[in-house]
């Protein structure tokens, strides 16, 4: 196992390098340029736009720009934002806490809902509980977050007036009052994201448990006279966790990467909204930095998932 992890880690580095090259080329080829708005402004002569392009080196050949980027990245320089004219790492760091808080909480909420509901629904397939849980799950993923978010705003902010819908990451103050304010504004975004995620998790958990519950060893365990709770926890859930671990590992990078739509609706200053505004402004250094960190997390978490499989099911061998 140790050898396997070591081998995977040594592959991870060149593979990340490859991904970074592809990302860079893709962004360089993608249409749009950071100084587009200048060109549409009658007040700015083309020479200035040209001077800016030269200054930020965006007319150089792609490979040279990539090597320059890579060299800087290796030295810990994440680049310089065209739009904000500050260092990219500053921009990203400002947004990490909020993203972790909102998206992280929503993931926890999703798991907290989906695991018990999914397991219980699968224990009694086609019971009333199962049907209700399923219906909610279907509603959950047939409605996009831009829609449910708005629905919640209309109900809880506009009609009832209970919750604010503009997220402020800089509420002044401290103590319980402050914590409450902070929590109140996070309720809706966390609920929207968490329940959307929970809807699909529930279906996966239900399906995974259904798969396992029919296997012989569960019946054996039952017939040995083990009590039901123990059977479920020790034998069923553990084996059913493999797909869940896969999905969670797929979702974990998003805890950093943020949720573009939900962040937009509630004006959460997260990484997702940074990414989308950078994309719309064609602010390539920011896009590159965010997507590259995201790529690293994808690779790391998928590796982690592979390792956890082995722990969940010791028969899984890696050779």
């Amino acid at each position: 196992m140790g050898k396997y992890i070591l081998r995977r880690l040594t592959i991870a580095l060149p593979s990340l390098l490859g991904i970074s090259l592809i990302l860079f080329v893709l962004l360089a080829l993608a249409p749009g340029d950071p100084f587009g708005e200048l060109a549409t402004n009658s007040n700015i002569p083309p020479e200035v736009a040209a001077a800016l392009r030269v200054k930020f080196g965006i007319d150089d050949p792609i490979m040279i720009r990539y090597l320059r980027w890579l060299a800087a990245m290796l030295q810990g320089d994440w680049g310089f934002s065209f739009a904000s004219r500050i260092d990219v790492d500053q921009l990203i760091l400002q947004r990490v806490p909020t993203t972790l808080f909102v998206v992280g909480s929503s993931q926890i909420l999703a798991l907290a809902v989906a695991l018990p509901v999914g397991v219980y629904a699968a224990m009694r397939p086609y019971s009333i509980f199962d049907q209700i849980a399923n219906t909610f799950a279907f509603v959950g993923f047939s409605l996009p977050t831009f829609f449910t978010g708005l629905l919640l705003i209309l109900v809880f902010s506009v009609n009832l007036g209970w919750l604010p819908f503009v997220y402020r990451a800089d509420i002044p103050g401290s103590g319980w009052q402050w914590a409450w304010e902070y929590f109140k504004q996070a309720i809706m975004p966390i609920a929207v994201l968490g329940l959307f995620q929970a809807a699909s998790y529930t279906r996966y958990v239900r399906s995974a448990v259904l798969d396992v519950i029919r296997l012989d060893y569960v019946t054996t365990a039952r017939s040995k006279g083990l009590n039901e709770g123990k059977v479920v926890i020790k034998h069923v859930v553990r084996n059913a966790l493999i797909p869940v671990v896969t999905l969670v590992a797929l979702q974990m990078p998003a805890v950093f990467g943020g949720a573009i739509v939900t962040e937009q609706i509630f004006r959460i200053p997260g990484i997702g909204s940074l990414l989308i505004s950078a994309i719309l402004a064609n602010d390539t250094p920011v896009i590159m930095a965010v997507t590259f960190v995201f790529a690293c997390l994808v690779v790391v978490f998928n590796l982690l998932a592979d390792i956890i499989y082995g722990w969940l099911d010791p028969r899984i061998s890696y050779r």
């Binding site: 991904i19 993608a30 797929l250 896009i287 965010v290 997507t291």
Partner: peptide, 13 residues
């Protein structure tokens, strides 16, 4: 992993 890491919007454009 590569496909998971690709930023969708620029790629679409």
């Amino acid at each position: 992993d590569l496909f998971l890491a690709l930023p969708q919007l620029p790629l679409l454009l």
